[in-house]
Design a protein around this nucleic acid. Structure first.
Length: 158
DNA sequence: GCCAACGTTGGC
DNA sequence: GCCAACGTTGGC
């Protein structure tokens, strides 16, 4: 069982939108970087944990937790000329881009702010606070995953 | 809106 | 296959 962090711009798709979906599930599409694609296509598996991170917004940080409920599969938006994610170069027979279905598990009482994450002494490897911070899909090791979730759940202030 | 970080592209 | 230029991400 692996742990991941997926970035999303909440103006486009937030954890609230995920909860509003049928089965609180959504096919995570639009990943268009090779590093992120490699994680998604080759390593993400059913049952994996996914931290939902809100970027480029007022309240930047980890908003909640989801899980992978279906194996990664080719992202159909790459073949859709009407989609913003259309990629005319992607071969039908060997699709370039992948996505995965995730399901909401938990919304944290407060967003665990990036600045708080940066101050946690145990967060050392997380690409978010290192080179690799631009990755849209990144691995989170078990220790750091536990620290992040425990901290996020404990941040209730009434 | 600015701009640093850094991935990608393309000339050679 | 190097590396400068370019474009995008994303925090602030």
């Amino acid at each position: 069982m692996a742990h991941w962090l997926f970035k999303t711009e909440p103006d486009a798709f937030s954890i609230v939108d995920l909860v509003a979906r049928p089965d609180q599930s959504e096919f995570w599409d639009g990943v268009r970087s090779y590093q992120a694609r490699n994680f998604l296509r080759d390593l993400v598996a059913v049952g994996d944990d996914v931290l939902i991170y809100h970027s480029s917004c007022k309240n930047v940080g980890i908003a909640g937790l989801a899980k992978v409920v279906q194996s990664p599969s080719p992202d159909p938006t790459q073949f859709d000329p009407k989609s913003n994610y259309f990629d005319p170069e992607s071969p039908q027979k060997q699709p370039r881009w992948y996505g995965v279905v995730i399901q909401h598990v938990e919304t944290f009482p407060e967003v665990l702010a990036l600045k708080t994450i940066k101050l946690l002494p145990g967060i050392v490897e997380l690409p978010l606070v290192n080179k690799g911070h631009r990755l849209s899909i990144m691995p989170v090791n078990s220790e750091e995953f536990t620290l992040l979730t425990v901290t996020a759940r404990g941040k209730t202030s009434g």
